[in-house]
Design a protein around this nucleic acid. Structure first.
Lengths: 275, 275
DNA sequence: GTCGGGTATTGGTAGTACCATTCTGTTGGA
DNA sequence: TCCAACAGAATGGTACTACCAATACCCGAC
């Protein structure tokens, strides 16, 4: 049953001292070169042990490293073993999240990056997305507004709708790299973004602002869309600032947050609808 | 010699079936909670084996995972062992870079993202970097120009200088997330960027353009700096287009590249020097 | 005081044995 | 004929032992 990799010995015995890493690198290279396509099974640990002329512990260590990187998936039992799988985004995100945790990165940093990315993404989306996608974006934003109109909104669903809207927007750039970075940042930002929907003061304005952004994109009005994007981040920063004050100073009836928030209810009609 | 973690048993025996992961998670949590600060040594593998009531192989697997994540560093010999270290950014970036590699992203996508990122980074760097950093950037660009003035330039050194300039610029934003993304994209872009220095036609212009960019940042002239950034990517795209034509069509004396490149030798004096 | 070797500690590798899980094929009954 | 239950094989997971290799430290000879 060692005929999965039968063309010729892809792998060669490892050097001493770093056998585990060496083997992991060889297998990783074979995977990235496409010699072992996703879905294919690697030989069993005992077969690899024989191929590499090493102990099974070393093989397990190497496979463990690849599993950690997300390159393979290991299943037990007969017909189990290591299967090459497509890298999933969430692993990349996890790696970033780990880094952000240990470095104690404040939300400011993430918000800044996301705002700049959002601006580029919006511009590209206007230029490249199909009318159907733009309409889907507007429809999604309208659904978000509607969901928040409910006096007892399902917040989990709302968060997911927001997330999907962001990803759709990123996808509209026709550049997958934007979507990947966006996903990674989203998992890092996560809860911060949610706080915007948790405050009743910001909730409706945020959703309505999303709708305006979508409409701006649909009308192919970059400057308008960018204005709404900016307003989103103005609100997000103010919301987080208020939250941190709430948690530190004596909660209750302190003055309004330092950053003055424009009044709610941006008119829908003033922006001319005939494009 | 098990007194490094002597307050109380931080760790508890692991459940069966996923002992390795379980142990890795426990240690990781202890590290991220700050119970084991960076620089501290973990108990030896044999001590951990006793604490967790498990085999040494499992311990090695767990430590290997943490090492893979970059949370610890393992040294051999007496007084060796696993020491907690600060997460290095390049490891985190590697995660995204690995993903980009497996997805076979074309250079177009990466270039687009990098250009938009470069523009934001440049703007922020002008606003936030110290004068010393800006001078260092100019000095680095000058060194690059000088290195390429040599008829037989050390290309490896040139690539590294270019890389370092990019990272310095990203660091000047005071936002580590930009540096993270930059590093990830760099390791993905890598060789594409190098082609700019490999073509004699573009080599000097690229370095000179770097110098102009750095000077624009130093003079706090965002629009000028952005113009030079744009020119860099104009050249990069043209260079890659020519390369792909070279490799496909009959190489030799075909017409000039489709995208007309402005003449070399942008004047240094015309931009006013008195800021 | 300095150099050198011995020794203890610790990670790295090899190998074996056994357990747990999963699939597969066979067998026996309805 | 069909289906369910069981036995067996393949494979990863764990445990344990032994030994090798590198490193730091100590101690004695010079």
């Amino acid at each position: 049953m060692s005929s999965h990799i039968n063309q010729e010995p892809i792998f060669s015995p490892a050097q001493v001292g770093r056998a585990g890493e060496d083997i992991a690198l060889q297998i990783e290279a074979a995977i990235l070169d496409g010699k072992i396509p996703p879905g294919e099974r690697l030989p069993s640990e005992r077969d690899l042990q024989a191929q590499f002329h090493t102990g099974r512990g070393v093989i397990r260590e190497a496979l463990g490293a690849l599993k950690q990187k997300g390159l393979i998936e290991i299943k037990k039992g007969a017909k189990g073993g290591a299967v090459v799988k497509n890298l999933e985004m969430h692993l990349v995100s996890e790696s970033l999240a780990l880094f952000l945790k240990q470095q104690h990165v404040t939300p400011d940093y993430l918000i800044e990056v996301r705002e700049s990315l959002d601006r580029t993404i919006t511009t590209l989306a206007i230029a490249r997305a199909t009318p159907e996608e733009k309409e889907a974006l507007v429809a999604g934003a309208q659904a978000l507004v509607q969901a928040l109109g409910n006096p007892e909104p399902d917040m989990v669903a709302v968060f997911e709708m927001d997330r999907q809207l962001n990803l759709l927007l990123a996808r509209m750039t026709r550049n997958p790299v934007f979507e990947w970075i966006m996903r990674a940042l989203q998992s890092g930002l996560g809860s911060y973004d949610h706080s915007l929907y948790n405050h009743p003061d910001y909730r409706e304005r945020t959703a309505f602002n999303w709708l305006q952004t979508a409409k701006g994109i649909h009308r192919r009005e970059p400057l308008q869309a960018l204005s709404f994007i900016g307003y989103h981040y103005v609100m997000l920063r103010a919301c987080l600032a208020r939250e941190s004050m709430d948690s530190q100073g004596p909660a209750g009836d302190f003055p309004r947050p330092p950053l003055e928030i424009p009044p709610a209810g941006l008119p829908d009609s003033p922006v001319h609808n005939d494009s």
